[in-house]
Amino acid sequence: MLTSNGYQLDERRLGRLVAVPDGERADRDVLRRRLWRDGYLFLTRLLDPATVLEFRRYYFAKTGLADADGRPREVERGAYRAVLFGEIVPGPEYDALCRQQALRGWFEWFFGAEVFLHRRKIIRHTAPGENGIGTATQAHYDLVYLREGTDQVLSAWIPLGDCPVERGGLTYLEGSHHRVRREEAEGRLKRPAASITADLPALAEQYDARWLVADYAAGDVVIHTAHTVHAALDNVDQVMRLSTDIRYQPAALDVDARWQHDWHDQDGL
């Protein structure tokens, strides 16, 4: 049984995220068409798993949130937040993870241009058993938070460690970017920036679409457009879920200046 924010997903409205086949990985035109069609690119093993797992160990050692196996520990919230926003988010280890050649180089190749990484980069963790509205990322599409820049920005969601479905990974609403693009073109812009809903089953019915899920592994990356509706599942495993989401775009296009500061959960974005 899969849930998100406590809402149980309907099995009739579930599907699997499809990874890009190895034979298509080096064909940029095919990948661009695939991204336009599906709204996402599921790239397995894009990153070195050892690099990802090294950062995972660093994160939990610094914050104390989990042991080496990812099992949760009790920590004082104030101390944890001080480390997260004062040391980890602005730190060189996190920056190196997000700018590693396997990632930045892929975006340069895909865009065929110099790229720009938004400074506001987000790290999320979900402990086992957390549920109810407000615990998992609610359904949304990224453009509503990036109105002051180009809509050609692409997000990379990176599981920091293995993330089987039960650990609460990201889920994508199949084909949702086509509807969002139409509504955006018609001027039905969602303002102010806000999530669509926590009720994923109802949204699937509204869109007549499936929520796509996957068992992610360390080294996997999912690239999605700014129009693709996505959300997170609840963690019903015994291990902490850790992930990051970052955004690249062609450097020559307009940049949302609000996203050029280190992330903080009280920054109003």
Rank of each mutant, 00 (worst) to 15 (best):
M1V: 05
L2W: 01
L2S: 00
T3G: 11
T3F: 08
S4A: 15
Y7W: 14
E11C: 14
R12Y: 03
R12K: 15
R16Q: 06
V18T: 13
A19G: 13
A26Y: 01
D27E: 12
R28W: 01
R28M: 01
D29K: 08
R32S: 08
Y40V: 00
L41W: 03
T44G: 07
R45H: 12
R45F: 00
L46D: 02
D48S: 09
P49C: 02
T51K: 15
Y58I: 00
Y59S: 04
T63E: 05
L65F: 15
L65V: 03
R71T: 02
R73N: 14
V75N: 05
E76C: 04
R77K: 15
A79C: 04
R81T: 06
A82Y: 08
V83R: 15
G86S: 09
P90V: 01
G91P: 12
E93Y: 00
E93M: 12
A96K: 10
Q100E: 11
G105L: 04
F107H: 08
F110C: 03
G112P: 08
A113N: 07
A113G: 14
F116I: 00
R119A: 10
R120N: 05
I122A: 03
H125E: 02
E130I: 00
N131Q: 12
G134H: 05
A139K: 11
A139E: 06
H140F: 01
H140L: 00
Y141H: 15
Y141K: 10
E148C: 04
G149A: 06
T150F: 10
L154C: 08
L160A: 06
G161I: 04
C163L: 13
R167W: 03
T171C: 15
L173S: 10
S176M: 11
R179H: 12
R179C: 03
V180L: 11
E184P: 00
R191S: 03
A193P: 10
A194Q: 15
A194G: 09
L200E: 05
A202I: 02
A202E: 14
E205S: 14
Q206P: 00
Y207C: 06
D208A: 12
R210P: 04
R210M: 05
W211N: 04
L212E: 08
A214K: 01
D215I: 04
A218T: 04
D220F: 02
D220W: 06
V221E: 10
I223C: 10
I223N: 12
T225A: 09
H227S: 13
V229G: 11
A231W: 07
N235P: 14
V236K: 15
M240W: 06
M240K: 02
S243L: 06
S243W: 04
T244W: 12
P250G: 05
Q260F: 10
W263G: 02
D265I: 00
L269E: 02
